[in-house]
Design a protein around this nucleic acid. Structure first.
Lengths: 201, 201
DNA sequence: TGGCCCGTCTGACAAATGTCACCGCCAAGC
DNA sequence: GCTTGGCGGTGACATTTGTCAGACGGGCCA
């Protein structure tokens, strides 16, 4: 039996995935969690073979949760199952020690197959996504540019961002300007969207 | 047997929901679709008792698809199952003739229960969401304001929007300004976010 | 019929944003 | 040692964005 912990914030999707895996004779869902923090606790309690993690979740994202779990349980395999196949997500997931990266667009039967391949020591990554991640290159934003751009996602003005980050307004404008150029955007809105699409924030 | 058609763009979620409903002895999934257009075709082919529709999908959103299905098959019950419980979505879904509105945050076992209640002629709506939809009031944006704001979501400049909608730049700015005020936002970015959160676009 | 509200549309003006050139500081790398 | 690059900052400038006052027309209703 492959013992699996399921981490996904949407309860109905989590339950549905559990029933999907319940159909497999050699797979057993031994725990469920709805956030990154909860995931670590449940993983420590159950010591599963595999943890299947969503990325976007309130209360700790799946990638950092995966890294923590791997630290505590080195034999546990980390798999990512996410809506968005963003190159930056894939890169960060790999750096965090994940061995599989699946998107929810793929057919349902691939989930069990991927779990078995991971159990056998293989890595499972969508080839097209891997190519995109490699061709896109690493995150070109400097840490500070990333901070400023991340502070701009909710529509804050330059003044707000300057106060929050303890910077001068001119500096904020400079960082935004260079972030706009690095993302090849026309303005900060497009810059935010492109950076998010690449998984750079 | 309650005959159900499942409409959801993410194949893995769709398959998982199918297996979840497959556990129920009195429910049968007789068709699946990945887009609004496909949904209509499958519904006409199978003439189900219930169609379960996601909203955000590439290729025709679930609400308008639901309206079309209801036109063609008046006895078919339209249920909405969506990630985002946005007041505007609920309102539009009700106007389109839906009899249930579920969010994916709710527990998995509620899905089958809701389907049975719909079969029995009941309506199923999250009480908190219904209150939010009523208290939020109707969409305050005029059709043209909505158009312009929708054209601004991708970071287009005023000039681009003006060309696309055959307006003068001043007019576009004016619509954006009034949309900003109606959404109580500080700038167009916030206006877009608030309008989306309310389901006004 | 006249007045009134609402939505649509426009140009003018002020404020915010984006760009550029440039300064000093510090840490890492050759 | 020197260079390079990220970081924080300044000031000036052009462009874009947001606001305002106002024009026009269609319903609505007294």
């Amino acid at each position: 039996m492959i013992r699996v912990v399921l981490v996904e914030d949407q309860a109905m999707v989590r339950g549905a995935l559990a029933s999907l895996l319940g159909l497999e004779p050699d797979i057993e869902v031994v725990g469920e969690a709805a956030s990154g923090h909860e995931a670590l606790r449940v993983a420590l309690e159950t010591a599963p073979d595999v943890v299947l993690l969503d990325i976007e979740m309130p209360g700790g994202d799946g990638i950092t949760a995966g890294a923590r779990i791997r630290e505590a349980l080195p034999d546990c395999h980390i798999m990512i199952l996410t809506t968005f196949g963003r190159p930056g997500y894939l890169r960060r997931a790999m750096e965090a020690g994940a061995v599989a990266f699946l998107v929810k667009d793929s057919p349902a039967r691939e989930l069990a197959a991927a779990i078995r391949r991971v159990r056998d020591g293989e890595r499972v990554i969508d080839p097209g996504l891997a190519a995109a991640a490699l061709s896109a290159g690493p995150n070109p934003l400097s840490p500070r540019e990333r901070d400023v751009l991340a502070a701009a996602v909710d529509g804050s003005t330059v003044g707000d961002i300057a106060v929050n980050l303890h910077l001068s307004e001119g500096t904020v404008r400079n960082y935004l300007s260079s972030a706009i150029q690095k993302t090849r955007a026309r303005n900060r809105i497009e810059a935010v969207q492109r950076a998010q699409a690449q998984g750079w924030l």
